[in-house]
Design a protein around this nucleic acid. Sequence first.
RNA 1: GUCCCCAUCGUCUAGCCUGGUCCAGGACGCCGGCCUUUCACGCCGAUAACACCGGUUCAAAUCCGGUUGGGGACGCCA
Length: 460
Amino acid sequence: MKTRFAPSPTGHLHIGGARTALFNWLLARNQNGVFVLRIEDTDALRSEERFTEDILASIKWLGLDYDGEPVFQSQRNHIHKTYVDKLLKSGGAYYCHCSPQRIEELRARALEAKDKPRYDGHCRELGLGPAPGAVIRFKKPSSGTTSWVDLIKGPITIDNDELDDLVLVKADGLATYNMAVVADDASMEITHVIRGDDHVNNTPRQILLYEALGLSIPQFGHVPMILGEDKKRLSKRHGATSVLAYREMGYLPQALVNYLARLGWSHGDQEIFSLPEMVSAFNLQSVGKSAAVFNKNKLDWLNSHYIKETPVPQLAALLKPFLSARDALPPNEEALEKIVLTVRERGKTLEEMAQKAAFYYTKDLVLNPTAAKKLLGESGRKSLSSLKEALKEIPNTHEDFDKILDELAKEHGIKKGELAQPLRLALTGETASPGLYDILVILGADECSKRIDAALKYQE
RNA sequence: GUCCCCAUCGUCUAGCCUGGUCCAGGACGCCGGCCUUUCACGCCGAUAACACCGGUUCAAAUCCGGUUGGGGACGCCA
């Protein structure tokens, strides 16, 4: 049993591709099979090495692995050729001298007649040979139907009349997609072809090729598309679509993988899956047939979940680059872990955590102007002054701090919040923050006093 | 336009194959409440769906047909 993921390096690995890779990987690992990577880089114009690197890095980040080294389709043209030769010899393929212009006219005419554009078979019986600019076409059966039982969609049948004699070898001598895929899948002995929904229409063409070549046909499974909120195919305008962009936004790979797996696949009511759990529970029968809308809320929820699950030292290491980007890095690991503890339940992503933790070690704390206007009036200043006095030393326990607040509140005849909020603003610059006592401990008496002074001096 | 595929709460889905246990279950979000010095977290609760029409049947979310809607494919791209 062998599956493959076959992306073309013409762009970053996106969410949809990642899910296809994941399903192939899960299936192979579940069946104790083999999972290989094949980079389909035969489009020299659009393929770029940096995208290959992006794909490899994405797969690694997601926590997937593949067997053996990645295979590059561009290096296999000689293999593709042997299959084409076989077809040529058996009469299953022929040279076509039709000019691209003629083909284009054909298409235009068909479209105008509201018909399906198809090659008319002009050169099919001409017995032509190689020539500059010539292509090789498949001589498809002129009647009958082609059908297969899709591993995900069930039985699918298509009339061979709907197909045309597709180009197998381009004028530049390279095999086209369908030819290359069949040659590669066959020679690599792929048994299960799991790919995106958009390939359903290629499947009958490929099956016909397998049949003409006398090869055994692999099983096919087509996973539904992922759509944006507007139910249109997911694209850039829906926001981030590349896998690595999610890493940059502070998502954990476990969260993305878990989310992607559950997008289309289900296992009863279970929502949270570790990778090993997924492997043992996975099967294609439980993959849905319909397209799914990508929902960031649920991804966020899963990310929060995995953030809370991650051991603090590990989480601290993950947060580091995000704090560093904000120039708010704590002086040492111990301090870092302390602040992690105070923000890990307040941010849905590492980026959000960093944003909420930046005030601790930022060089210049800026007070939120609207909040300052509201909280640093006469009564606010009075609160701050008395708190400054009371907090010359940081209380030993949370309870002690509570007591101080209670006493000051009683003394001034005000609510606790009227003390806490000005203090919060002075220390963090904002009205929402982690618990005040935790902040006091982390900042220390000196820093607290400095920030309170700064707030007392605050001018609009 | 032609062909292929799909259709359960706003979203992801369970159930559908093997009709009755489903006046449809779970999760996320939304809304309300509790907790609380803020924001979160946590806990509790509420709202919310079988696209439509017809057929089969004692009985249909489940089977069949059609309609509508959506998606995909129609390249010398992959």
